[in-house]
């Protein structure tokens, strides 16, 4: 049974890239997508069997950190920040850790990273697998 993944990112292209990447991982399946934190919260209550959430930080309506604050209370799903501002040791990465992000991966070339699979695919897949196995 593949693990169910929700993608939360305001960039439509980025959602496509991430979904396309996840299709290459047989042990994961995208079951929901959302364009901001609020939409993700709504979808989360309708999709309770999500195992992993890939979450952007900078989004309109409700950003990723605020979503994290709420979602950590109400879901057992693992949450991995996937954001261009979450580079190793950055304040955003630290804040995400404080709020309970289970994993943090930086997008390789900005908020819309068409080279996600090529440049960060291995790291992202490893992080996803580590989180769901924990």
């Amino acid at each position: 049974m593949p693990y169910n993944v929700m993608i939360v990112d305001d960039a439509a292209m980025m959602r496509l890239y991430i979904a396309s990447f996840i299709k290459t991982l047989p042990d994961f399946k995208v079951v929901a997508q959302a364009a901001n934190g609020q939409e993700a919260l709504d979808k989360l209550s309708a999709t309770p069997n999500v195992d992993l959430i890939l979450l952007d930080i900078e989004m309109p309506v409700m950003d990723g950190l605020e979503f994290l604050r709420h979602a950590k209370l109400k879901t057992r799903a693992k949450i991995c920040m996937l954001s261009s501002v979450a580079v190793s040791g950055s304040p955003h990465a630290a804040k995400a850790r404080e709020l309970g992000a289970d994993g943090v991966v930086a997008k390789p070339s900005g908020t819309v990273s068409h080279d996600l699979e090529e440049k960060t695919g291995d790291e992202l897949a490893r992080t996803m697998r580590t989180l769901v196995a924990a």
């Binding site: 190793s88 040791g89 994993g103």
Partner: peptide, 11 residues
């Protein structure tokens, strides 16, 4: 920050 760095090293 150390939590972040160690966690990435772990993974």
């Amino acid at each position: 920050t150390l939590v972040d760095l160690f966690s990435r090293t772990h993974i």
